[in-house]
Structure formats: C-alpha cells, structure tokens
Design a protein around this nucleic acid. Sequence first.
DNA 1: TTGACTAAACCGACCAGTCGGTATACATTT
DNA 2: AAATGTATACCGACTGGTCGGTTTAGTCAA
Lengths: 198, 198
Amino acid sequence: MPKKTARQKLLEAAQTLMLSKGYPATTVDEICEAAGVSKGSFYHFFGTKEDLALAVLEAFQARNDRLIAAGPQGGVTDPTERALVLVDHLIAAAGEMWGAGCLLGNFALDLAETHPAIRQDVSDRFQRVAAALSEGMAPLASEAGIPHAPSAEELAEQFIVVVEGALVLAKAHKDWSYVTRALERFRQDVRRAVSVAT
Amino acid sequence: MPKKTARQKLLEAAQTLMLSKGYPATTVDEICEAAGVSKGSFYHFFGTKEDLALAVLEAFQARNDRLIAAGPQGGVTDPTERALVLVDHLIAAAGEMWGAGCLLGNFALDLAETHPAIRQDVSDRFQRVAAALSEGMAPLASEAGIPHAPSAEELAEQFIVVVEGALVLAKAHKDWSYVTRALERFRQDVRRAVSVAT
DNA sequence: TTGACTAAACCGACCAGTCGGTATACATTT
DNA sequence: AAATGTATACCGACTGGTCGGTTTAGTCAA
C-alpha cells in the first residue's frame, strides 16, 4: 500500500500552486520543488501533468464534501430549519473551503477548451455538488410562500454561481470580503424568496 | 482616418482566442496566424504579449460600455422604472456582451498572481463598471421597502458576481443557459428586495 | 529480490521576443 | 520633375530559453 508522503506532498503543493497561479502557469518542476520531491517521483506517481490535475481535483472536492457534511445541520430536526442551518453553515465554512479559491472554477475557465477530459470531470463534479446542495435545500423550495419562488435546484445552482463569481472578484481585487458580502446577500435573497424572517 | 487592418485584426483574433483558451494557452504565433499577420507586425504594434492583453481588455470594455449605453433605459423618465429597464436591458444584452465569456473574469483568475499590471487593470475596470451600474440602479435602493434591502452598490456588485459566476458554470458545462437562468434569478431577487411586482 | 523512490542529465517541441530587411506614402530638397 | 529623406507598416527566419516528459543509474527498506 503506497501511503504517506511523496504523493500526498505533490498533491498539496500542486493544489496550492494551481489555485494561486492557475494550471498552465504552474510547472511540473515547480511543483516538485515545492513538494521537496524529485521529478522522477512525480512521474512515478502521475502519468502526466493532466493526471495530477485530476487527482488534485478529487482531493479538493473530497475535502469540501467532508467540510460540508461536518456542519451542524445534521442535528436539526425541523426540515426547513435544517435547510436554513445548512445555508448558514455553507457561508460560515466558505473561508475554509474556498479561502484560496476554487479549483473547479479555475480549471473550468482555464482548461475547458484545451483539456476536454478535465472539463468533463469539472462538469461532473459541479453537478454532484449541485445535486447534494439541492437535496439539502429542498425544504426551502416546498416552503415557498411567494410567487416565482425558485426550486431547490435553482437555489443550489445560484449558490454555486454566487460563490464562483465572488471568487473572481475577490481575486481581481485581492480582497476576500467580496465573497463574504456576496454570500450574505445570497442568504438574504434566499430568505426573502422563501419569506422567512431575519 | 485611423488605420484599419493589422492592429485591429490582431486585437480581434487575440480577444477570440483568449476568451476561449485563456491568456497563457494562447500563443503569439497563433494570434498572428488567426489574424493573418506576421509576427514582425505583431511586435511592431505591441511591445509584449502583456501589452496586447491590456489593449484587448480596453477594446473589450469599450464595446460593453457602448452596448450598455445603447439600451432603452435612456428614454424612460420615472427613475425606478428606468432602473428596472436598465436591469432588463443588461440581461437582454448579456449574450452579446458575454456570449464568449468575460475577459475581466478570465484574466482575473488566470493572471492575478503572475501579472500584477493586468490584475490592477482588471480591478480598476471592475470598479468602473460597478460604479456605473450602481449609479443606474440607485433608484432601486432608495425605493427599498423591505428590511435588509441592499444598497445600489450592493446590487451592482451582486450583478457582476452573478454574471461572472454564471460564466464559469456555462464554460464548465458548455451550456450557456446557466447564464440565462442565473440572471433571471437575479432579476427576481432584485424585485423581491425592492418589492416591485412581476 | 523487488518495488517505492531519488537524483540529475537529457530531449524535442514550443514559445516570447529579436533582427535585418522590404514596401509604401508623403514630404523636402534640388 | 526628379532625387532624396523619412516615418510607418509589414515581413519571416532566427535565437535563447523553458516546458513536459524520458532515461539512466542508483538508494533504501521489507
């Protein structure tokens, strides 16, 4: 069982570098140096740079899945309340999940046209989190007491849209508060659309 | 009369290529070939690839400014109505403005860490459109008949967030309808936040 | 012995940027 | 009107360096 170090260090170094500079600007040599690992090792573990990117994507989303599942919404019994707690938790954990950016969004913009396999992988992963969030937000949709209220799928989709868009602005302005504000507005929009106080 | 051909063709080719593949993956040779212009010409007009990127950015935003200004909101007298017409126009013209993506967003994610000058330029341009939209949306903020209603600045910021985020998803899924839906939801959110019917 | 791993030299493709040169147009001089 | 100067547009082979990836030669632990 190949375990602990080299591969893991490569994944972490690659994630950091690719989040900050993007995939094309991150060189294999650079990743190896940052990980303190030889290039021979790199190609022992990953067939190509693209393979590494897919593995990093997997690790990135696995971590976020864990962070979402670790929220307090599990302990809430009332369905509507649980959905609202989920939204609050997503917002509270945003820094941990996307503090350095979102690999899915970065890769989508960078590689959609040039690396079809990565684009497909990113697309699938977006679908998966959309489905998961949609399930968690379902009570908010059935609750809807207002005309043109969005479905659970729409709420989930809009959440992802807001996160990705806010990250773009945060990076452009080097100011993470764009994310905080955008998510807070999303929170208010959801509550208005469903007519829940606060 | 300003000269017509080579420089202009380079700008157009570069815009198309950079929107689709991103800045780093777009080579100078490729731009020259697409423009039907020699490399010598390229470096006659632009000092570096980065200079070209800045020029393309300028052209991109100039075009969008024109498209926004060309909307029907100018002819509306009632302030609130005019602001709502502006929002509708932005959504209607989204395809023309961002049908192939948004250079500001692409560059922000791609180049923020590696090309400080471009990042600064993008940041300034985002600020500029935010200010312009904010001015156009001001009546909606003062109208606010609902608690926690967003300010005009917040409305403008959220609009940009939604556009950029939706473009990320559209590219990931190769499906532009993500933009249409996200903007439609934004429209509803705005009207709810300001309590205007429809 | 075998399989995980290191170290570094190496390769071919490719890339941004350079350089020497030609072409045209329009002045200025003779 | 011819000759000359000059500024700008434009060309494409070429250079120096970088990148992803390979190869070789070896280390170390189970």
